[in-house]
Simulated scan of single mutants.
Amino acid sequence: MTVRSALQINMHPLDARHVAHTLGHELEVWGRQVERVTLTIDTKRSLTGRYRGASYDENRKQLFDHIETFAARFSNLEIVEVDYSPEAREAVRRRYFDSSADVPEKAYDGGPLHAYFYGLLRADADYILHMDSDMLFGGGSQAWLDEAIGWFEQTPRCAIRQSIARTPTVDGALADLHRYFPEATRCRDRRALAADYLGLWFP
């Protein structure tokens, strides 16, 4: 069933070492601001790149042992292994890549690709807060998500909202903070952006 808001976190067995220190923090900051928490675990081992990893099976067990301890604390939490079946891959393609004939399972370096979009699909929410498992958040406000959704509702042409990933400058300037997103210069709500977020919309 589609919910209004969901937190969706991607993980991989090789994340086990840091997840022991970061997941609890992520859930405490965000888990009670959403209706659903979807932990998406990519258990399909890559054949190339650093994602092949060593001690894969050991890390996989360690990861699941750890994340399952949170299921009892967060009643809105679900643990989902990424489904690579033809049906699941086709569902992702139709939802996010409808003009493409196929979508690769992995990125060129063996990193996740299908897994990210499968996680978004399974989160099944009007508003999805996506993150990886190695992120830390300062401040700890329990109103962040409601504020962001409120901004979306007032700015219907906006496609993406992203928090500034470092301390804002003294004058609130955004210069060079998002140089990889040239379309950001087309956002017109400068006061809101300078205060909290980067918003992107496209004509």
Rank of each mutant, 00 (worst) to 15 (best):
M1C: 04
A6P: 08
A6D: 09
I9M: 01
N10W: 05
N10K: 11
P13K: 06
L14A: 05
A16R: 07
R17V: 12
V19H: 10
V19G: 14
H21K: 12
G24H: 07
G24P: 03
E26Q: 12
E26F: 00
L27M: 11
V29E: 05
W30S: 10
G31Y: 06
R32Q: 12
Q33I: 06
Q33W: 02
Q33E: 08
R36M: 08
T38P: 03
T38W: 01
T40D: 08
T43F: 04
K44G: 04
K44A: 08
R45K: 13
R50W: 03
Y51V: 00
Y51E: 10
D57F: 00
L63P: 09
F64G: 00
D65Y: 03
D65N: 13
D65I: 02
H66F: 12
I67L: 06
F70L: 03
F70N: 04
A71M: 09
A71D: 10
A72C: 10
A72M: 13
R73A: 15
F74L: 08
N76H: 12
L77H: 03
L77Q: 07
L77A: 06
I79M: 05
I79E: 01
V80I: 15
D83K: 02
Y84A: 04
P86K: 09
E87H: 01
E90D: 09
A91P: 00
V92P: 01
V92T: 01
R93T: 09
R94A: 11
F97P: 04
F97M: 04
D98V: 06
S100G: 06
D102C: 07
V103D: 01
E105M: 13
A107R: 04
Y108T: 12
D109L: 02
D109Y: 00
G110W: 03
L113N: 05
H114E: 13
L120M: 03
L121P: 05
R122N: 14
A123H: 09
A125D: 10
Y127F: 15
I128L: 12
I128E: 11
L129N: 07
L129W: 13
H130Q: 08
D132F: 09
M135S: 12
G138D: 04
G140N: 03
S141I: 00
A143R: 08
W144A: 04
W144N: 06
L145K: 04
D146H: 07
D146I: 03
E147I: 09
E147N: 14
W151A: 15
E153I: 07
P156W: 00
R157S: 14
R157V: 04
C158I: 14
C158N: 14
Q162V: 05
I164V: 14
T167E: 15
T169M: 13
V170T: 03
D171G: 10
A173L: 02
A173M: 05
D176Q: 08
H178R: 14
Y180M: 14
A184S: 15
A184Q: 11
R188K: 11
R188Q: 12
R191W: 02
R191P: 01
R191E: 14
R191H: 07
L193E: 13
A195D: 14
A195K: 14
D196A: 14
G199F: 02
F202Y: 15
P203N: 15
